[in-house]
Amino acid sequence: MKQRVKIIGIARHRLSTDGDGVTTLVAFHGCPLRCQYCLNPQSLADSGNFKEYTPQSLYDEVRIDEIYFIATNGGVTFGGGEPCLHADFIREFSELCGASWQLNLETSLNVPSVNIETLLPVVNTLIIDIKDMNPAIYNSYTGQSNDLVLDNLRLIADSGRQKDCIIRLPLIPDFNTETDRTASCSRLEALGFNNFDLFTYQIRRH
C-alpha cells in the first residue's frame, strides 16, 4: 500500500526564502511541538483543508516548475509542521525527482535520530529552528524536551554536514534573552555550526 501524507499547503515560486533559487514549499501536517507562538497552527488542527498525497502524486504536482528549479539551482523545501516525521516519504520523493532538484528541510530536529539518518543522504540543506539550546527555556516554550534535538545536532556534526545547515535562533519575547541566544550560539559553534539566522519574533499583543 502506497504511503500517503497530509499536506496543509503548497506554495510555488518562492525566491531565496527557503533555500537557493526558486523553490516550492510543501508543508506537512503534524508536529511534535506545541509552541506558545505557533507560526503554523493549521499543522496541528484535527480537521481542515488537507489534501493527501503519495510521493508520486506530489512529484506529479510540483514538477510543473522543474525548469525553474534546474535553471536557478532551486527545488522543493519540506516544512510544516515537522517534515522529518515523514522521512520515508521524502526519501521516496527524492528517488523520483533525482539529483537535479535541491531538497531542503525546515525542521525542529525533534524527531528520532533514525529519521535524520534516513534524510541526510537525500537532502541538500537543513534549515533548523532551534528555539533555544537551554533545556528549560526550550521546554517552557515548546512543551517538549530538546534531548532529541541535541542528539540530532551531534549526529549531523559527526556526519560533517554542518556547512549544509542554517540554524534559526530567535529572540522570543517573555522566553529568552540576547544573553541566552549568545549562549546557544556558543554551544552550536562548539559543534561546528556557524551559519546562523538571528531574528526576533514579532508578537501581536491584544
Rank of each mutant, 00 (worst) to 15 (best):
K2M: 15
Q3R: 09
R4C: 13
R4N: 14
K6M: 10
I7F: 03
I8H: 01
I10G: 05
A11K: 13
A11F: 11
L15T: 13
S16R: 10
D18A: 04
D18E: 11
D18I: 03
D20L: 14
T23M: 07
L25W: 06
L25N: 07
A27P: 01
F28Q: 03
F28D: 01
H29M: 02
G30T: 00
C31G: 01
R34F: 12
C35K: 05
L39R: 07
L39Q: 15
Q42N: 13
Q42T: 09
L44Q: 14
L44N: 05
D46I: 11
S47I: 15
S47N: 15
N49T: 12
F50N: 09
F50Q: 08
F50P: 04
E52Y: 13
Y53M: 02
T54F: 11
L58C: 09
L58W: 04
L58G: 07
V62D: 03
V62P: 00
V62E: 01
I64G: 05
D65P: 00
D65N: 03
I70Y: 06
I70P: 04
A71L: 08
A71T: 11
A71H: 07
A71K: 13
G75R: 04
G75M: 08
F78T: 08
G79A: 14
G80M: 06
E82Q: 13
E82H: 13
E82D: 10
P83Q: 11
C84E: 07
C84I: 10
C84F: 09
L85R: 05
H86R: 14
D88K: 12
D88C: 05
F89P: 08
F89V: 07
F89A: 03
R91Q: 11
E92S: 13
S94Y: 06
S94M: 08
G98H: 07
G98L: 03
S100E: 13
Q102S: 15
L103E: 06
N104V: 05
E106Q: 13
E106S: 11
T107F: 11
L109N: 00
N110I: 08
N110G: 01
V111W: 12
V111R: 05
P112G: 14
P112Y: 13
V114F: 14
E117G: 00
T118D: 02
L119E: 00
L119D: 00
T125N: 10
L126A: 05
I128N: 00
K131T: 09
K131I: 13
N134F: 08
I137V: 15
Y141M: 07
T142I: 12
T142A: 11
G143M: 06
G143E: 05
S145M: 02
S145E: 06
N146P: 04
L148F: 10
V149W: 06
L150Y: 09
L150Q: 12
D151A: 03
N152S: 08
L153S: 01
D158R: 11
S159E: 13
I167Y: 10
I167C: 06
L169I: 07
D174M: 12
F175S: 00
N176V: 10
N176P: 11
T177H: 09
T179R: 13
R181G: 01
T182R: 10
S186I: 06
L188W: 05
G192Q: 01
G192D: 02
F193G: 03
F193R: 02
R204Q: 14
